[in-house]
Structure formats: C-alpha cells, structure tokens
C-alpha cells in the first residue's frame, strides 16, 4: 500500500510534450471553459481533449477511479439539469464537464508523477524570495510519501488494539495516531538535523 506503485505512462505523441506546457494549457482551457457558455467553444475544447486522450494511449487502470467519479458527477448533473431546467441547459452542462475533464485526463495519462512533481517544484522556485526554500519543500514531499504506508500500518495496529479491548473501531483512533505521529516527528527532526540537512553555513 504505497503511493508509488503507479504504472508509468505508455510512450505516446503527447508524452514528448513538456509537462509545464501541458499544465499551463490545461489550466488555461479550464479558465476558458469556466467563463464561456458558448456551446461551440465547449464542444471544440471537449473534442480536442478527446483527441488528446486518444493520442495519450491511457492506461485505464491508472485513471479508473477518477473516470468513474467523473461519470457519476456527469450523470447526476445531467439528470438534475434536465429535471429542473430543460434539455438544452443540460447539454451545455454536459459539454462543459467533458471539456474540463478530457484535457485533464489526457495530461494525467501522458505524464508520469515524477515529471509532474519536478514541474511543480520548479514552479515554486520564485517563492525562494519570500523565504520558501525549494529543497525544504522537496524534503516535506519526500517525507510525506515515505510516511503514508507507515501511518496506514499505524492505523491498522491501533484499530486492532481497539478491537482487542472489545471496542468498535471508530474515528477516535485519530487521537493516539496523532500523539504517536508527533512523537515520531521529533525523532525524525533530530535525524534530519543529524544529517546536516539545513546546515549549509559551513559550505560557503
């Protein structure tokens, strides 16, 4: 149960385009679809997105959960719009949702997590001026990825302990979880300092 069991994207035409370009395009298209209600614009964005998704040769196992999620949202929205308004309004809604969904799915299908992470961290680099060090952000991200499986294991252990005492596993498992976590974070901080992560003063 780790986060990084993701399969790599299959090589495709869209995979050769840089991740920053793709992210900027998706955000721009998203803003365009949010402000525009012209059905021609929405339909063309959706068509471009569909073509891009086909060109990206997606691994459906990776996108599965999200596609189902979008499907449910689309179904509910279409039904509600048709019932409360009329078919034309429902069609516009459906087109807008398709136009928002398909390009984003195409980017996800054609870009690996490492590439996207790199892009986000590089985009944060200008924030160094306000005191946000990219290295520290990267450390936080790496520690998070590392600790998720450990925490999931903690949750199971704590639940077993509750069951062993005849309690029904409940949300209250979070209290011992957090206390453990905070204890753990002190040890971790000492380990980070012991490895001289922040001590760059002697280098220069």
């Amino acid at each position: 149960m780790t986060l990084l069991t993701d399969v790599a994207p299959r090589p495709s035409a869209l995979g050769t385009v840089g991740a920053p370009t793709k992210l900027v395009v998706v955000v721009a298209l998203g803003v365009l679809c949010a402000v525009s209600s012209s059905r021609v614009v929405l339909a063309s964005v959706a068509a471009v997105g569909a073509l891009a998704l086909v060109a990206a040769r997606p691994v459906w196992r990776r996108l599965g959960g999200l596609v189902v999620w979008w499907g449910v949202a689309l179904g509910v929205t279409l039904a509600l719009q048709w019932l409360t308004r009329d078919l034309a309004v429902a069609a516009t809604s459906g087109l807008r949702m398709a136009a928002l969904c398909l390009p984003a799915l195409a980017v996800m299908a054609s870009t690996g997590p490492e590439e996207l992470l790199d892009t986000v961290l590089r985009a944060l680099r200008p924030l160094r001026r306000v005191g946000l060090d990219t290295g520290t952000v990267a450390l936080a991200v790496a520690l998070t990825v590392r600790f998720v499986p450990e925490l999931v294991r903690h949750v199971h252990t704590l639940r077993d302990a509750q069951r062993a005492r005849g309690l029904r596993p409940s949300v209250l498992v979070t209290i011992p979880l957090l206390v453990r976590c905070l204890d753990r974070s002190r040890t971790l901080a000492e380990a980070v300092v012991a490895r001289s992560f922040f001590d760059r003063s002697d280098d220069g």
Binding site: L143, T144, F147, L151, L188, V193
Partner: peptide
C-alpha cells in the same frame, strides 16, 4: 526548523492515510 518540516510532512501523511 526540522521539527516544523517533520510535523508538516507527517500531517500531510495523516491526511493521505486517513
């Protein structure tokens, strides 16, 4: 500083793990 980073990372992990 290291404690701040560790706490941030662990709570991010808590959000994901939950």
């Amino acid at each position: 500083r290291a404690r701040a980073v560790a706490e941030v990372a662990l709570f991010a992990a808590v959000i994901v793990a939950l």
